[in-house]
Amino acid sequence: MSRGQIGPDFDSVLHAARAGAPWALERLYLALSPAVVGYLRVQGAADPEDLTNEVFLGVLRRIASFDGTEDEFRSWLFTIAHSRVVDERRRGERRPQIGGDGLDVDRDPVGGDAEHDALQRLSSQRVQALCEGLVADQRDVLLLRLMAGLTIEAIAEALGKSEGAVKALQRRGLANLRKILERDPVSL
């Protein structure tokens, strides 16, 4: 699995972004926004593209206060994205749904690879359908762990739980996911 990464240039990109350099802000967005929008889509966000914009608007405005590695930046980014998902759930605007309106083809994404974007949405729908069989906490842990690549510690901080609780949720989530896949192997 290839996660959106900046790689060895991350330190210089972050340094420039903290100073407000537009080129660095743009590079962060282009590298990480696809993963964020995918996470939000799988989590059933009503408008994942718009919510991704909100997440990056908040992150980039506060980036001057951030200092850390790329993995830590990624954790910070997905923690904020997850908090937006939680906010949306609380507002009751939309619950996670199987086969939602992910195929909003009228959008013109940056880069414009329509075929790949359609596959991305289809993958999101299949993953979303699988995750519907999990309770919310297990789904959150597995997606943050497997999709965002967060550590147990980072997930614990993002969810406001202890590391032991996160490990337990992960173990139960994986066991339940295995049951789902064995029962319905054609889901993927």
Binding site: M1, S2, R3, G4, Y29, L30, S33, P34, A35, V37, G38, Y39, R41, V42, P48, E49, D50, T52, N53, L57, R107, D108, P109, V110, G111, G112, D113, H116, D117, L119, Q120, R121, S123, S124, R126, V127, L130, L143, L146, M147, L177, L181, L188
Partner: peptide, 17 residues
């Protein structure tokens, strides 16, 4: 499942507001 997650995370950046 992990590969599907990876596919869902790839693609183009969404349009900016």
């Amino acid at each position: 499942f992990v590969e599907e997650l990876g596919e869902a995370s790839r693609g183009s950046a969404p349009p900016m507001t």
